[in-house]
């Protein structure tokens, strides 16, 4: 079995008296997409900062590609790509100049900047000043910048937050392409749809602690309720809603009874969303 791409061992960080990250441990396999989900202030960004060498853990350690991040941050940073939540590009420079600068900082000489721009849907706009880009274009350029060194691990912090559907879809496509290439992806988000669709596993973090870590499918099986929701016409002629929980011995009989004796207007099967499960586990939403 290959060595994990990311190992977090008992990672802890404090901002003064506030315990931002509370002894968390997890691993991420090579080529895996791990979704790191949690509300604002849960400790997501602090964890990313420790994993990427921007913050030194108060205790515990992080190994990326087998290298201790706190001891050798520059060795690690040479092999990762980081896409920040807030656009932090040089707005007075062009898209091409932004990417060229970072290629030089990484010592990458054979990168095809135009191909990179094409991948994120910015072909033909590379010569424009970044200050004239829309929010979605800036975010796509940030993704391109994170890919400039063909990273082994890609850290994406809310990459589709507040973007139009086209930009968001373009970014999701690039994420899957990077996974195909073999990159490990650490995706921080509170978009449950995105996490469900992209991630091999998701970790729920709340108040600095990981409260669940598994595949979306297993989490739904373990914590969710599958049900059938039906709208029927009541005796007074008004619409009523009936919910029938699946996976119980009496379920087939209940459904048969519904169809035989009720006037069914709509009938839908439903399963728990990751957000439902997060609320169930933490007692709070993701917003």
């Amino acid at each position: 079995m290959s060595e994990p791409a990311i190992v977090a061992e008992d990672l802890t960080y404090r901002y003064g008296d506030l315990l931002a990250v509370d002894h968390i441990s997890f691993t991420v396999a090579p080529g895996e997409i791990l979704g790191f989900l949690g509300p604002n202030g849960a400790g997501k960004s602090t964890t990313v900062k420790m994993l990427t060498g921007q913050l030194r853990p108060a205790s515990g350690r992080a190994l990326l590609l087998g290298i201790d991040v706190a001891r050798h941050p520059k060795q690690v940073q040479a092999r990762i790509g980081v896409c920040f939540e807030q656009p932090n590009l040089y707005e007075e420079l062009s898209g091409v100049d932004n990417l060229s600068l970072f290629a030089k900082l990484f010592g990458v000489r054979d990168v095809d900047i135009n191909a990179l721009l094409r991948r994120v849907g910015l072909d033909g706009r590379g010569a424009d000043l970044v200050g004239r880009y829309s929010k979605g274009m800036k975010q796509r350029l940030m993704i391109a910048r994170a890919l400039v060194n063909r990273p082994d691990i890609l850290f994406l912090d809310e990459p589709t937050e507040g973007l139009d559907p086209t930009s968001a879809e373009a970014i999701r496509r690039v994420i899957l392409e990077e996974q195909q290439r073999g990159a490990t992806i650490f995706l921080t988000t509170h978009d449950m749809y995105e996490a469900d669709r992209l991630c091999n596993r998701v970790a729920f973090i709340n108040s600095g602690k990981i409260v669940a870590l598994d595949t979306p499918h297993h989490l739904k099986q373990q914590y969710g309720k599958r049900m059938v929701r039906a709208e029927v016409v009541g005796s007074d002629g008004k619409l009523l809603t009936r919910e029938i929980i699946l996976d119980r011995p009496e379920t087939p009989a209940e459904i048969a009874d519904l169809l035989a004796h009720q006037q069914v207007v709509t009938l839908h099967s439903e399963e728990a969303t990751l957000e439902d499960i997060f609320i169930r586990l933490t007692g709070r939403g993701l917003a």
Binding site: Q54, K74, Q77, A78, V82, F84, Q86, L89, F102, G107
Partner: peptide
């Protein structure tokens, strides 16, 4: 925030 971006490179 561009300083942060610079400092997560080598």
């Amino acid at each position: 925030g561009t300083i942060r971006a610079l400092l997560v490179t080598p």
